[in-house]
Design a protein around this nucleic acid. Structure first.
Length: 904
RNA sequence: GCGCGCGUGGUGGAAUGGCAGACACGCCAGACUUAGGAUCUGGUUCCGUAAGGAUUAGAGGUUCAAGUCCUCUCGCGCGCACCA
């Protein structure tokens, strides 16, 4: 730790103001019909003090949200406060702008590390989690963020996860009605004629629920001891920890997110997210238009249905491929091929996901012995199985058109299958083999000669007419695997029963039984038989009526799917969120709706952000929330790297701990640096020297405002005063005698208003780095003024306040002694407006170019007409050598910008 | 492989198509000082004593004018990855 002298006493100022804000609950947001206490600055500003405020009396709302953190044992990381600082600056800016700002914080506190720690030590995850939350709270509070702590929540709070379970029940008790195109209560589902018995009705109903049970191969991670969603598996490894993942058939809970694929895709157009993020979601949803086509199996009544985006290439289909898992494989395989097919199925099943992707180069497969009939030309084509065809996409079977599909082309060459051209590239020199783009249909019967889009239309119509196929839209998005074999998650409000025939079936617990608490355990490991840890609690597991509880728990994403809603009404005991609160905080304000600004890392691009949108849409369909989208504007902050330009990690030893930075430079400098580093969205390396730079800037601000002699007295007094009483000594520091409550010079006003303009515009556009540089320019200028007008310095403090709130408040309070009538509370003082008239120049400098090259600058009156500008430009001294002996052929004048002389 | 984004001084970064390098860091020189890792002043893209010239990854193009728009190449980052 450095022993260098402090630039200013932030160590006293910062705790002082944090205490003040907490004492007066300065940043509490008021809901409709809340009572606003007499002395609250929000009430004073909006004339609501001492009143109960109905929705229409409240100012417009602004909901600014951070992605809440997982409270890890490692504590806060410098990456966390980057987004939090940005949102805090905007929250403070909007408050000053007269908005009712909702700016909450909470904890995404279910999760694996606490559970793994529990497995090792036997310490209950709740104990670990609470200790971590305490530490995170301390760290976050020490940064002076203006959160409304009265709305703090943790996903592990019983009062919170009770409602998470409640929402699950809504999913369970709903189905997606394709006719109304929305989710409806399961009661509106009509049974088909065939579902006569109670058991059949139950089965039918269960097959339609938004939350359903599926027995299918899932992503099993042995190391983590749990299954994972597709979104949590990256390159065949777990997103958390990077452990191998294998396919394993298991009984699991799924959420029918695929029913919302179309809406999740279409509604991206209604929200203000970055293009790259929208693109990631689009790719993940993966919509593709094409056709399903039925191929008859030769010598059999069966058909194989395939999905293709290129029905126009049907005449070029020379073979078919089924995925090894396809249900027709055993049926169609001929006796001679049986052994080979079985061997191949085993070979494919034994591959891990990792091997499937990494060894994708070389195609493999075997012939089944069967032939299918191409519906357009009645030709017999062989049916193969190969693992390059995925069971989980489309119909799990394809028609192979080797001439115009790279994968089929590779496969056909390896196994010597015929390749027939059916598309002619528009560019005649292009090789048609392996040509996959649009062209002209050839060798294709009745579609020959048509351009690809027309050929697609015509053949699809033909297939539909002959009842051989139909236009189809397919999505890459799979249903969301929603259960985990863990302890530290929300238990499902579900029990299992046996019917008369001895079949297990599931049933939801009634809402009145919520919350379902997890049992207390001694041992958090799975059972020896591989059951989830909850199965260890025999008393909990078995209900008196003989039914058994579901032992899986929900994934960590469950809690984060709706926390932004709970913040709007965090204490509501009757409902997950009240109608008034939802209407006020999430309502439209004349634009697309929801959270006005949501800031967080890109790592949640397809996980949290897709899941939360899905839940929100279900709640919207069911009438529980007022908007179709949760987050109107979303910004991803960039990664902060270590000083070496590498990703921060313990193993690299380049992790910067915010506590250390705070101790040495203070919270205001830390906040300022995080914003000064560069654009919020960019990845950028940490640089301790850079912190010193902004710290020095704050020191200059301090010295601009305070009297140096009094500061020396203060410092001497501090050394002989006990620590706890030092804060009171701040009163010894007097205002800089150069500051006068008199008129400002035009130059001072101009400097101020230029700064107001720049900072305001930059805040609107979230350009924090350039806003800070504008304030630096102001201070560099102001420090040279012999007499400093209080009326110029005061608005500057308002500009500084969102960035460095502690220092600004301290100086504001000192300056108030000079300027009577100053609002007591800086945080709610109305944001200064710039006066354009003060920025107008009578004379401006404009550059003179000769043949497009900059040569000189001339000073002219702003309202000078073109003739004068031209004349002045021709006289510009440094331009003379380039004009001598030449004729000016053309003069280009951009008013107030530049003049360009074109000479021969 | 496909998609998206980005390449500007020694460093982080600024520049509605109109004076490239704002604002900082670092460095150099000076002032104050017992001292400086405090503070203040000045300088700092490169070549050149200067006048001037070159310069925004590279090559070409549009334009009176290009870091900015277009085309190609190279490099980096992110995402997806046999999705038919």
């Amino acid at each position: 730790m450095s022993s260098s002298r402090r630039q200013y006493p932030f160590h006293l100022i910062e705790p002082k103001w944090q205490q003040t804000w907490e004492d007066e609950q300065a940043f509490r947001a008021f809901n409709p019909n809340d009572f606003v206490s007499e002395g609250h600055p929000f009430g004073i500003r909006h004339k609501l003090a001492g009143k109960t405020a109905p929705a229409d009396s409240l100012p417009p709302k602004f909901y600014i949200l951070d992605m809440f953190p997982y409270p890890s044992g490692a504590g806060l990381h410098v990456g966390h406060p980057e987004g939090y600082t940005a949102t805090d600056i905007l929250a403070r800016y909007r408050r000053a702008g007269g908005f009712n700002v909702l700016h909450p914080m909470g904890w995404d506190s279910f999760g694996l590390p606490a559970e793994q720690y529990a497995v090792k030590t036997g310490r209950h995850p709740r104990v670990t989690t609470e200790a971590n939350i305490t530490n995170f709270t301390r760290q976050i509070k020490s940064l002076g963020f203006s959160y409304d702590w009265s709305r703090e929540l943790a996903t592990t709070d019983v009062e919170y996860f009770k409602w998470t379970q409640w929402i699950f029940l809504k999913l369970y008790n709903s189905w997606f009605n394709p006719e109304t195109n929305k989710a409806e209560p399961i009661e509106t589902l009509k049974f088909p004629e065939s579902a006569g018995t109670e058991e059949k009705q139950r089965t039918y109903r269960d097959s339609k629920r938004l939350a359903y049970v599926s027995e299918a191969p899932v992503n099993w991670c042995p190391e983590l001891g749990t299954v994972l969603a597709n979104e949590e598996v990256i390159d065949g490894k777990s997103e958390v920890g990077g452990f191998p993942v294998i396919r394993k058939p298991m009984r699991q809970w799924m959420l029918r997110i695929t029913a919302y694929a179309e809406k999740l895709l279409a509604d991206l157009d209604s929200i203000d997210w970055s293009d790259s993020l929208k693109e990631m979601q689009r790719n993940w949803i993966g919509r593709s238009e094409g056709a399903e086509v039925d191929f008859q199996i030769a010598g059999s009544a069966g058909t194989i249905r395939v999905f293709t985006t290129r029905p126009d290439t049907l005449f070029g289909a020379t073979y078919m491929v089924l995925s090894p898992e396809h249900r027709l494989v055993p049926e169609i395989t001929t006796p001679e091929q049986k052994a080979a097919v079985e061997a191949y199925k085993n070979f494919a099943a034994g591959k891990s996901d990792l091997e499937r992707t990494e060894l994708a180069k070389e195609k493999t497969g075997v012939f089944t012995g069967a032939y299918a009939i191409n519906p357009v030309n009645r030709k017999q084509i062989p049916v193969w199985i190969a693992d390059y065809v995925l069971a989980s996409y489309g119909t799990g079977a394809i028609m192979a058109v080797p001439a115009h599909d790279e994968r089929d082309f590779e496969f056909a060459r390896k196994f010597n299958l015929p390749i027939i051209q059916v598309v002619q590239p528009n560019e005649p020199k292009t090789d048609w083999q392996g040509f996959t783009e649009d062209g002209i249909a050839v060798n294709s019967g009745f579609i020959t000669g048509l351009a690809t889009p027309d050929a697609k239309k015509k053949i699809t119509a033909w297939l539909e007419e002959k009842n051989l196929g139909k236009k189809t839209i397919n999505f890459k998005l799979r249903d969301w695997l929603f259960s985990r074999q863990r302890y530290w998650g929300e238990p499902f409000p579900i029990i299992w029963k046996k019917d008369a025939a001895g079949n297990l079936y599931h049933e939801a617990l009634p809402e009145t039984s919520l919350p379902v608490l997890p049992p207390t355990l001694e041992d958090y490991k799975p059972t020896p038989s591989g059951e989830p840890p909850l199965a260890r609690a025999k008393d909990w597991l078995h209900l008196p009526d003989g039914s058994i509880r579901e032992t899986n728990t929900m994934p960590q994403w469950a809690g984060s799917c709706w926390y932004y809603l709970r913040y709007t009404d965090a204490k509501n005991a009757q409902s997950f969120v009240g109608k008034d609160a939802d209407n006020y905080w999430m309502a439209s304000n004349g634009k697309a709706a929801g959270v006005d600004l949501y800031v967080g890392g890109t790592e949640h691009a397809v996980l949290h952000l897709l899941y939360a949108r899905f839940w929100h849409k279900v709640l919207f369909d069911l009438g529980y929330v007022s908007t179709p989208e949760p987050f109107y504007k979303l910004v991803n902050q960039g990664l902060i790297q270590g000083e070496d330009g590498q990703k921060m990690s313990k193993s690299r030893g380049n992790v910067v701990n915010p506590d250390d930075v705070l101790a040495e430079y203070g919270a205001d400098a830390f906040r300022l640096y995080e914003m000064f580093m560069g654009p919020l969205q960019d990845t950028k390396p940490w640089n301790t020297k850079g912190v010193e730079g902004v710290y020095r800037f704050l020191g200059r601000v301090w010295r601009l405002f305070v009297d140096e002699h009094s500061e020396t007295e203060f410092e001497q007094a501090e050394t002989i005063t006990e620590t706890t009483k030092r804060r009171e000594l701040l009163g010894l520091i007097k205002i800089n005698p150069a500051i006068k409550d008199g008129p400002a010079t035009p130059a001072q006003l101009k400097t101020l208003h230029a700064c107001i303009k720049k900072v305001t515009e930059d805040l609107e556009a979230m350009r924090f780095n350039t806003a800070i540089s504008a304030m630096m320019v102001f201070v560099n200028e102001a420090i040279t003024w012999e007499t400093k007008a209080a009326q110029v310095l005061q608005p500057f403090l308002q500009l500084l306040a969102p960035f460095a709130p502690h220092l600004a408040e301290e100086l504001w309070a000192k300056l108030a002694t000079l300027a009577p009538g100053t609002p007591a509370n800086l945080a709610y003082a109305p944001w200064p407006k710039f006066d354009a008239a003060l920025l107008v120049e009578s004379e401006i400098e404009i550059p003179v170019q000769v043949n497009g090259k900059f040569r000189d600058v001339i000073k002219i009156a702003v309202d000078a007409d073109n003739a004068i500008i031209e004349a002045q430009a021709k006289l510009a001294e440094k331009a003379q050598p380039f004009l001598a002996g030449k004729t000016v052929r053309k003069v280009i004048i951009v008013p107030k910008k530049m003049v360009n002389l074109i000479v021969s």
